[in-house]
Design a protein around this nucleic acid. Structure first.
Lengths: 194, 194
DNA sequence: TTTGCTTTTGAACAGATGTTCATTAAATTG
DNA sequence: CAATTTAATGAACATCTGTTCAAAAGCAAA
């Protein structure tokens, strides 16, 4: 039999991706077997291979889709460097806080990719970093920011902002608005603007 | 036979730990089998169990030793809050840059610990974070720092500093001295001091 | 050299691993 | 309805997994 509960068409693919996402984030890619993913979806192992050529591609697709969504969702830069930096900080925190599983995987499972897949993911990540670096260089060139080394400051800011995901929980002591405000305060001061 | 090359006494334990450290950091805990560790040491699998009761304890010991070394190596706080913060930043970057494998494992393999081991590691980590938070609270109370939420600033600074490990390489564009100077500049400004 | 202790071996255990594929069932199309 | 395409099954594959343990080997002291 193909499916016993029937009625919905072609929904297995997304369900596999969702199960893999959660399981990889919780237990780690190497600790999750194809059989466990299949069980979570309610299907036998063999069925997974109608949707992915192999396990690593399942991981790679999750990462690539996440990073492409990140690049696609980032708002078009508007205003001066200061305004664009504020926009970037708020966007980064909110986008990442909304997708803890994807973020976790995209940062922690890089070593489970083959060289070719790894290079693709790194290229996407660099495109994202370059957007922040461009803001910093623009601000530095007009004197709005005091940033000696834009590459270092870029990586420092991104590490700081992404770090929110390690502790932020919905319904915790602070709202996301408060978190965004606090981090923007730190970033604004760190780049020596205003 | 116990060992064919003989001559050195009781050195297998450290060699197992070193092999496990490198392999866990490179491939991830779940992706490294006891047999691979044994092969790296030049010994059969069974011999490993003279030095660790199980695989997870091997991981746990590496993490605990790393965090205890971190706590033991941190310099005694001297001077005012500003001086102590500068001391902390320099120490953190240098200590972590010296031990990339340990740092990587201690951050990435937490989910492979059982609840009891996890709690112990988290307790050690919190003790380290508390040291930074104390510096920030002291500085805030004397008006040296403008820090509204010391917990958030603590986590933000640690994330930013630890992020150095993701890109810093010996012999790269920047020396560690330069990195320390740049990060201290950012941290100093971010806390609103001087 | 003989005794005793420590360490390593090598094999075994019971089960899990990613992946393939012929068969079967369901869904879609005519 | 029948014909065709799509999708899931269930078993099999060869290999790897953490861990155990009796037997063998190495070492130190007497």
């Amino acid at each position: 039999m193909a499916r016993t509960t029937g009625s919905h068409a072609g929904i297995t693919g997304p369900r596999i991706r969702q199960a893999a996402l959660q399981l990889f984030a919780q237990r780690g890619y190497a600790a999750v077997s194809m059989r466990v993913i299949a069980a979570e979806v309610g299907v036998q192992v063999g069925a997974l291979y109608n949707y992915t050529p192999d396990k690593q591609t399942l991981l790679f697709d999750l990462m690539r889709d996440h990073l492409e969504a990140l690049l696609a969702a980032a708002p078009d830069p508007k205003g001066d460097a200061m305004a664009r930096l504020e926009q970037f900080v708020a966007f980064h925190i909110r986008f990442h806080a909304d997708r803890p599983d994807e973020v976790f995987i995209a940062y922690m499972e890089l070593r489970n990719l083959g060289p070719e897949n790894f290079a693709q993911i790194e290229a996407l990540r660099r495109r994202y970093e370059d957007r922040l670096e461009k803001i910093l260089r623009d601000g530095a060139s007009t004197g709005v920011f005091q940033v000696a080394d834009s590459k270092i400051v870029t990586l420092a800011i991104i590490a700081m902002l992404t770090g929110v995901n390690t502790w932020f929980r919905d319904g915790g002591r602070l709202s996301l608005d408060e978190v965004v405000a606090q981090y923007w305060d730190m970033v604004r001061k760190a780049v020596g603007g205003g």
